[in-house]
Design a protein around this nucleic acid. Structure first.
Length: 577
DNA sequence: GCCGTTTTCGGCCCGACTGTTTTCAGTCG
């Protein structure tokens, strides 16, 4: 069983326990454990083998025993018993907006409703309004919620959500009286997939802005409206929230709506220990006095903390690090000097090498590796060995023109074949300055097979970087079922760099493994995989990914001074074999 | 169910919005 499967089981226990009416802190404990396991960056199974389950935050004796049982038997008696007591289909009801554990339990016990279908039938027949606490309006809300659920798409990828959000933010900023507007929520934290869009605004008089917001022409449904907070639904079932406070309270508001919820809970606990109470409005004291903050720095400072970058606010140890003065210096765009994975018309890129080089130079890069596809990836116009050598001449000629302004590297994105061999013979790989080896096909091989395949490629001494290691496509296609313990161990052993592919459909290596890899001392490489000049700007998404992984510039080879990077590549034996 | 230089027992964030059981519970972020 992998981490996600075990985490999903604990989330399920939490849902069912909540409906059953267990004390809320028990269910919170299961959710916390589920989150911790997802963020582990190591296989739970490996942690168990080392006898270190209790080191996982939020895992105590009871949950550790359940993990043991799951890993040993693949089953969990506790969950099976729980599913006897509470109809498992009730957890589906929790997905309906405005239906939580209390209502789900009431529908079940008072209305004999246990499935979404039964809930819809009862609502349509007007049978919900007779139940406790339910009236006509509540019944209509449930029906609207069921319809919204059916419309609602899966979570959006960051790359889809951010442009939509920027358009809305620009529109909100254009409204009279909107003094400040920011994108908040998981988008500001640069989470890889996005459930809904959150905006915060500063205004003296929120009324007109809220009115304009809920009457925006794209709004299809108003889910809620109030003085300080409104919520609407647009096409595709996408929900948008807007929060407004006066300018002097904008700092606490932005902090609150940025989240994450778990980070905010930790922060509020810290406030409590100092005798303070933190809310989206203010920081208050027991005597009723309160302080207001127009910016986030002030909020964190009042709690004795340095400002914590939004990408780190996931309750993964950032508050402890901030208290200890040990927040990492995260990566910024200006740190990047090299791009090591782009394509040109020599394979499936849109423009010539010269145009790509010009675009790289405009963006301040000092090193650019042309990494066109190797031969067998026919769909991507992969280069034969002959074409690769022709391209080499063109790169050399262009380098002569460019002089010192941009260092071009002879590179290739070499296909890792189904048996783990590489697409070019070793003597051809040896001619290259940089070799990116990637998996594109047969990603559904069983774990042992695809892991062995990747390890074999990593052990080829000519390979410098593993491109988009898992092969996942967000938001829906899962990556290969790799044994990450082995992948990381062999990366450390061979010194090969793991790519963080900046394309928002990939963001692969995943952040939890990127963080662990960096902690282990494995080099990482941040690249756009650009197939056209403007795709070099996708680097922003990749920077977000490195920041979510707590990476410092030193841990990412693309930030190194060109001489250091070239020396690293040379030391890996390129051009000398 | 977890956790601890304030506690091994007694805590475990805070407020907006909604609808209904007109004073509060449920849901959400």
């Amino acid at each position: 069983m992998n981490n996600e499967e075990i985490a999903a089981i604990f989330d399920r226990i939490a849902d069912l326990s909540e409906i059953k009416g267990e004390i809320i802190y028990k269910t919170l404990a299961y959710r916390k454990a589920a989150d911790s396991i997802r963020n582990l960056g190591a296989d739970v199974e490996a942690v168990q083998r080392e006898g270190r389950l209790l080191d996982i935050p939020g895992v105590g004796k009871a949950i550790a025993e359940k993990i043991d049982e799951l890993l040993t038997t693949g089953r969990l008696g506790f969950l099976e018993k729980l599913e006897q007591e509470v109809p498992p289909t009730l957890v589906d009801l929790l997905k309906v907006p405005d239906v939580g554990p209390k209502k789900a339990a009431m529908f079940w016990k008072q209305g004999n409703i246990t499935t979404l279908g039964e809930l819809e039938a009862a609502a349509r027949a007007g049978r919900l309004r007779g139940l406790p606490g339910m009236g006509e309006k509540s019944e209509a809300r449930i029906l609207a919620g069921l319809e919204a659920l059916a419309r609602r798409s899966k979570r959006l990828s960051l790359g889809t959500a951010l442009p939509i959000a920027e358009r809305w933010a620009a529109w909100l900023r254009s409204l009279p009286g909107a003094e400040r507007v920011e994108i908040a929520g998981s988008l500001r934290r640069r989470k890889i997939t996005i459930g809904d869009l959150d905006f915060v605004a500063a205004a003296r008089d929120p009324g007109p802005i809220m009115e304009a917001f809920i009457h925006h022409p794209e709004v299809q449904r108003i889910a809620g409206q109030g003085e300080n907070k409104s919520s609407v639904e647009i096409a595709g079932g996408l929900n948008i929230q807007l929060w407004i406070q006066p300018p002097e309270r904008f700092g606490t508001l932005l902090q609150f709506v940025t989240g994450s919820k778990e980070h905010n809970v930790r922060l509020r606990e810290l406030a409590q220990k100092k005798g303070l109470s933190l809310s989206e409005q203010s920081i208050s004291r027991a005597d009723g006095s309160e302080d207001h903050f127009s910016d986030e720095q002030g909020v964190y400072a009042a709690l004795g903390l340095p400002w914590i970058p939004p990408e780190m606010r996931e309750d993964r140890g950032e508050i402890a690090a901030a208290l200890a003065g040990k927040l990492p210096r995260l990566l910024n765009r200006v740190d990047l000097k090299a791009e090591l994975h782009v394509h040109s018309t020599w394979s499936d890129g849109a423009v010539s090498i010269a145009e790509m080089a010009a675009a790289a130079r405009e963006r301040g890069l000092k090193v650019l590796a042309l990494s066109d596809h190797s031969g067998s990836l026919g769909v991507a116009g992969g280069m034969s060995v002959e074409k690769l050598r022709e391209r080499s001449l063109e790169i050399k000629a262009l380098q002569a023109e460019l002089g010192d302004s941009l260092r071009l590297l002879q590179g290739a994105e070499v296909e890792i074949r189904a048996d783990g061999s590489l697409d070019y013979p070793d003597e051809v790989l040896a001619e290259l300055d940089v070799v990116v080896a990637s998996l594109h096909s047969s990603l559904r091989q069983p774990r042992e097979q695809i892991t062995a395949r990747l390890l074999r490629a990593m052990r080829n001494p000519h390979v410098d970087i593993i491109g988009h290691p898992s092969g996942r496509l967000l938001p829906n296609r899962e990556g290969a079922d790799l044994d990450w313990e082995q992948v990381l161990a062999v990366a450390l052993e061979t010194g090969v760099a793991l790519e963080i592919n900046a394309n928002p459909a990939r963001l692969d290596l995943d952040e939890v493994y990127a963080r662990r890899a960096a902690e282990m001392g494995i080099p990482l490489s941040l690249n756009t995989d650009a197939h056209a000049p403007d795709q070099l700007d996708l680097i922003e998404y990749g920077i977000g990914a490195t920041r979510r992984a707590w990476l410092t510039p030193e841990q990412v080879i693309n930030t190194w001074p060109p001489d250091k990077l070239l020396a690293w590549l040379a030391a890996r034996g390129k051009g000398t074999a």
